[in-house]
Structures are given as structure tokens and as C-alpha cells.
Design a protein around this nucleic acid. Structure first.
Lengths: 220, 220
DNA sequence: AAGGATTTCCGCAGAATTATGGGAGAATCT
DNA sequence: AGATTCTCCCATAATTCTGCGGAAATCCTT
């Protein structure tokens, strides 16, 4: 389930949009001022929907802060003013989509779905970069500066697990389920072993140990 | 994997576009001047994206040189000026598509996908080269330096499957469905057998075993 | 700083997977 | 029909991967 933060000072529209978005099963939090929204950036929602015109901090300033905090967080702009729209497109504010007022809530929902799917789907196509490494998920290949590195299937599964969730700590339990499947009943020490093997082969991967918890991949 | 050369002197836009294009798994090289780009024509990228307005050599001169070098290389123009757009459409500069600024990176990616698909679709008629081998898909024939090699029908099906997906690992399941059809219920070890026979006949084909996964054809 | 808990490191045996050789039956060709 | 090729499958060999025990190192708490 995804969390969506909505920022729009028109309370009526705000209320309507929240209703529509919640109807899709998303968890929505709404703000009517830029400052209030800014202080919620650390909560890391899965998607931001920003109106450009806001009483205090405007949408452009807001997106800068959001992207500064996490480059990958998707943002959708909404605005009524043509010059804002031009600015969004022309200056490349880093938004993932925009929608011009007036619009049907239905339309917004469609865009949100699309953006969420793209941002949080394991990229079957496309690639993942991590420092000098380039990962081609669909080819089960990882290269270091063009030089392919051999990984066994479990090693690769682990890599993908972490590479698609950079920064998120993973418990041994989670790793076991993801790599071994939920029908594995051996010791969870095998995870340590697998981590060790991956670290050895991919020495530039910052696989951090979280004592008593598990592991996480630190952003490059 | 395709290589795309991008020429645009607006560094900001340039950087953003590179990011988006790389995300799709393409290899991107970017230039901020026409002269720099011109000297890279011999490197034969799979696609050029050209801004019209450039400090030295403009997009129109650039496309002439590109097409002179290889008529078939696809080119996409981008420009902000209406008169450029008119010129592109009216004078038939040989571009395969154009896109007016401002635009969303997403939009460009869609066009690029379309152009690449059109230009580099594995031709049903036409041939595939792999090292010393030349494959004529429509004739179901493969030659090694002009010398035809006999393959049985399943062997040929397997070859085509891999040759059209070079580098991508194929599970036994996928191979079974593709070569035998989805109504085959025997053991999937027949795949090993088929691979063995193809390897024997086409010894220069790097059909790699991926332990626990399946097989893949390594790029020549 | 000590002590217990947790993690890392190491090597190897056995488990799992794949390669190979050969044979029987099916399919195809003459 | 007979001959030839093709396909499937089995048994065995070869290979690769992985789990485990235990020792060493590291981390956290007191």
C-alpha cells in the first residue's frame, strides 16, 4: 500500500482528491500550506502531488527540498496557470508528471497509478546504477565499468533485493523469504554467508551490517 | 542495447535527458557542441538526438554529415523555435521525428523507443550476424563463412530464440514453451539435450549455462 | 575494560544441477 | 517398408553451489 502526500490550499478540491485517492486504497495525507508539507518530507511518502501556487512555500521550492532529500521520490504537479505549466516543462523541475487545472479526479488517479507503477515496480527493463556498477536486472548481469562479474543465482537474488531497496534495512527473515522462499527451514546464518560472498565479489557495494537487525545497502 | 548520442548545449536539459535515457537501459553519450558531435559520427551510434540551435555547427548541418556517413541512422530533432520546426517539416531534412521544446523527458523517451523499434526491429526478412555465423531467419538457414550448416527444426528454433535475445538468460520453462509449445509435458531435461546438440554443431556459439537458471547466448 | 552477544571468516562435504554417452522408439525420407 | 535421422529419456560422471560447524573478530552493554 502506498502513501501519497497531497499539497493544495484549495480546501474543497483537497477534500475531493483525498476521497478519490483513498478510494484506490492509498494512504493519503493532505496539507494546505507549503511549510506544513516541507516538515513532512522526512516521512518519505511514496508520491507527492503538489499545487504550484501555495500561500507560503510554493511548489517549485517544495520539489527542490523533496528531491534534495530523496532524488527518486516521484512528484506530480498540478496548476491552473499556463506560465507555471511552461515552467514545469521548460525548466525541468524534476517532476514526473503534471496536470493542468481544471481536471477530473479520475484523470489524476490514472496518472498516479502510472507513476507509482513505474517508480516502484522492480525494473524488468532498464538498469540500476550503483557507483561503478551497472546492473541489468532482466539479464541477471552486473558489470563494473563494463567488466562483467559472475554471481551465482542466490548471490544475484540478494543483490537485486538490496539494489531495488537501497537504504532500506532488511532483516534476515525478510532476506530468507525473498531469496530462499518461505519454505526454507534451515538456520538464518546462511544469510550472513551469502552477504559475505556478495561482499567479496562486489567489494564496492556498501552492504552495511545493522547489529541485531540485519543488513542494508547504503546509497552509493 | 542501443547507443544514443545526444547533442544539446543546454547543460541542464542535457543532464536530465541523459538520466532518463540511461534509465531505459540505453548507452548515452552527450555533446554540447556541434563540432564535438561531428567528430563522433564515425562511432555510428544507433540514434542521434539533435538540438537545432547549437553554438557552432547547427543541427541541420549535423544531420547532413550524419546521413552522408550512413543514410539509415535515425535522427530526432529537438527545437524551441517555430521556424526550425517548420523547416524540419517543410524541407524534409531527413529526420525521423522531431519534438518541440518544451517537452517532458518522458515524451522523448517514448519517441526514441518507437524510432528504435522501427529502425532496429529484428527483420523477419534480413539476417542476423553472430561472429562467423550468418543466420537467414526466413530461410531457416545458418552459414559459417558461407558454408551452410545443417540444423534440425528444433535446433533451429532454439538458435533463433537465443539469437534474437542475445545476452538474456532463458529458463528451461521459457525454452520449452518457445520451442516445444505450451502443450508439452515431458521432462525439461530435453532442453539440456537440445542445447548440447546445438553446441556440438555450432561450436563458436557461446551458449552459456547459468546454474539454477537456464541458458543464455553471450554476445559475440 | 570485560564479557556476552552477534557477526565474520574459512574450508569442505554433500546437495543440487548440468554434461555426457548410449539406447529405444518416433518421425521423416526414399 | 526400410533406412536414416531425430527426439526423448535414462544412468552416470562432472561440475557448481550452498549450508554448516567452529574459530576468530567485532560490536554493544554495563
Amino acid at each position: 500500500m502506498h502513501t501519497i502526500y497531497l499539497v493544495d490550499d484549495e480546501v474543497n478540491l483537497n477534500r475531493v482528491l483525498v476521497k478519490y485517492l483513498e478510494q484506490e486504497g492509498w494512504q493519503v495525507k493532505s496539507f494546505t500550506s507549503g511549510e506544513a508539507a516541507a516538515s513532512a518530507i522526512i516521512e518519505k511518502p511514496d508520491l507527492w502531488i503538489l499545487d504550484i501556487m501555495l500561500p507560503d512555500l510554493d511548489g517549485f521550492q517544495l520539489i527542490k527540498r523533496i528531491k534534495a532529500h530523496d532524488e527518486t521520490t516521484p512528484v506530480i504537479f498540478i496548476s491552473a496557470r499556463d506560465e507555471d505549466i511552461d515552467k514545469i516543462i521548460g525548466l525541468e523541475m524534476g517532476s514526473d508528471d503534471y496536470i493542468a487545472k481544471p481536471f477530473l479526479p479520475r484523470e489524476l488517479v490514472i496518472r498516479v497509478k502510472k507513476i507509482l507503477a513505474r517508480a516502484y515496480a522492480t525494473p524488468k527493463t532498464g538498469l540500476i546504477r550503483y557507483g561503478d556498477y551497472t546492473i541489468y536486472p532482466e539479464k541477471r548481469v552486473i558489470e563494473e565499468n563494463g567488466q562483467e562479474i559472475d554471481l551465482t543465482s542466490k548471490e544475484y537474488d540478494l543483490l537485486i533485493l538490496f539494489a531495488t531497496q537501497i537504504g532500506t534495512p532488511m532483516s534476515r527473515e525478510q532476506i530468507l523469504v525473498s531469496v530462499w522462499g518461505d519454505d526454507y527451514f534451515g538456520s538464518d546464518r546462511v544469510v550472513d554467508d551469502l552477504v559475505r560472498r556478495v561482499r567479496k565479489k562486489l567489494s564496492k557495494l556498501e552492504l552495511e551490517t545493522i547489529y541485531g537487525i540485519g543488513y542494508r545497502l547504503v546509497a552509493a
